[in-house]
Simulated assay, not measured.
Amino acid sequence: MKAAALLLAGGMALSACASDETSGGTASSGSAGGSASAAALKVGLAYDTGGRGDNSFNDSAYLGMENAVNELGGELRDLTPNEDASNRPELLSQLAEQGFNPVIAVGFAYGDIIGDVASEFPDTTFAIVDSSGVGADGQPLGAGNVTGLQFAAEQGSFLAGVAAALKSTANHVGFVGGVETPLIQSFQAGFAAGAEAAKPGITVDVKYISPAGDFSGFADPARGQIVAQGIFDAGADIVYHAAGASGGGVFTAAAASGKRAIGVDSDQYETVDDPAQKAVIMTSMLKRVDNAVQGFITDFSEGSVTGGSDIVNDLSTEGVGLSYTGGFIDDIKGQIDEYATQITSGAITVPTAP
């Protein structure tokens, strides 16, 4: 499959498109040239909380869809949930009803409803980022027409923990999670394990912006700043966030404190607009949602998607990793690479839960 191969490529430059309002959420649509055989390709994407403009998770998913449509030709449409994200099922149904196929749900929050929607549209192929195409009972979701696009985020976060520990002069680092869920706890677990491996006895403070079930923690930069500031005030000199758009607040707190931060999902040194925020981002844990989405769409266009299964992107496929933009961690790259080799060889098993 090309999904794995595409994990080795793809730029992270983000581009804008026109937008308008449609029932069920904010939508933007466009088309791109391509071969005549791909002209019928219509790709739909439903965002996680906050939608476009988070400089992270959602933007990366859009980039993957945009790259695929630019390469293959066809049409794209993206929809954003309402403020409380209660209309997630309607967004997926709307895209399927309008003939978009495949339809991609961005975020594990769609996991509870995508199976029901997929059952209603058995001729539509669905994918879900950060969740599984298989239910807790081991049976394929929907009509066997859902593919999970998953990531070994704990592995990339382990390397982020290594980098934080090696660069910390305070022997004290921190983690800010957007919402306290098992997925985000896997980022926490990997980060803490990596920090401890690189510098035994290091202090790792952990705080979450919102509890399980309250997804506002992914779209509240003001609260992210307050939470991160508390960690910096307690003595940490580097904070890693897995908090979506709220990460902007973490960067603001780092800048105000004269400290450092670690971004997530995208190379946030490249994606943030604020020079003050950019200056404090020493690295980002890359979760290549863009490549996973692009690879899935490419596989779909070639007829090689079967559904009822998962594609796992990890260090071995370069589906996760660290950015080196800005040169802040170039001097410890050799040590980071050694830990990465131990993970891919199986010598280190990274925990997925705190």
Rank of each mutant, 00 (worst) to 15 (best):
G74F: 12
F300N: 01
A61G: 15
R88V: 12
M65R: 02
L183K: 01
R52P: 06
K167H: 09
E180A: 13
A39C: 02
D205S: 13
L322Q: 13
L92A: 06
K2I: 10
S284W: 14
N87Q: 01
D123T: 10
A256T: 15
T80M: 14
V129R: 02
Q229C: 00
S19E: 11
G178P: 07
G99F: 05
A85G: 00
A68F: 07
E154R: 00
V103T: 07
S15G: 09
V206E: 06
S257Y: 12
D233Q: 13
Y208A: 00
A353Q: 14
N87A: 03
N58I: 10
A242Q: 06
L166P: 08
P81N: 01
G235M: 09
F191A: 05
V179P: 02
L183T: 05
D267I: 07
G50P: 09
G53Y: 11
S132D: 04
F158Q: 08
V264Y: 03
L14M: 11
A127V: 12
G161K: 00
Q342A: 15
G25T: 13
I209R: 06
D273L: 11
G174I: 06
E21M: 14
S86F: 00
A165M: 04
G10R: 04
F218P: 13
G51N: 08
Y47P: 10
D78G: 03
K278G: 10
N313M: 08
T124R: 03
G249S: 09
D137H: 06
R52S: 04
Q277P: 05
G217S: 06
A292T: 10
N145T: 07
Q98A: 13
Q229P: 08
Y324K: 06
R288V: 09
I238G: 01
P351K: 01
S15F: 10
D265T: 12
L149K: 01
S323K: 03
V293N: 02
K199L: 01
G326R: 00
A219I: 14
I104A: 07
A4R: 05
D237A: 08
F328M: 12
F100K: 05
G190C: 07
I226W: 03
F121G: 12
D59G: 07
D299R: 02
P221M: 09
G190H: 06
I202P: 03
A152Q: 12
A198N: 12
Q277N: 12
N291Y: 11
